[in-house]
Amino acid sequence: MGLVWSFLGSALAVALSGIGSAIGIGYAGQATAGVMSEDPRNFGKYLVLTALPGTQGIYGFVAGFLALNKIGALAATMTTEIGMQIFLACLPVALAGLFSAIHQGKVCTAGVGLTAKQPAESGKALVLGVFVEFYAVLGLLITIFLLNAV
């Protein structure tokens, strides 16, 4: 039973963060495609804003990988309690990744609009997106600390 809980935690860390990133990039990507269809200049500025919500998916992947390592190391002594600990340790990055990626996608979409109107202000749009990123990083850090504590 411990293995089931730990695999579930690892899977959720990757899946939820990935879903959030896909939605977030979907928003920003559509807005960028719209802007590009009218004015193909400054693609580099839009590329960063579009890619930014994708980092949560990477954080989820890293957490999932660390959880699997932990599962591998503890496989011989795995109990339900340890499995649930790994499951709970994976939740911060899974949930923070899911919600922060979606909201970061919205912020980046607004940033794409800002850049389309005032290309010189793209740096400010990026900074606003990074603010949301901060909470996904916190989620990943807590997941890493919790996994180390198992």
Binding site: Y27, Q30, A31, T32, A33, G34, V35, M36, S37, E38, D39, T109, V112, G113, A116, K117
Partner: peptide, 15 residues
């Protein structure tokens, strides 16, 4: 969000 692509186009056109 169904209008996100269109809003991107509008932002350029507003300029």
């Amino acid at each position: 969000p169904a209008y996100t692509y269109a809003v991107g186009r509008v932002r350029v056109r507003e300029r």
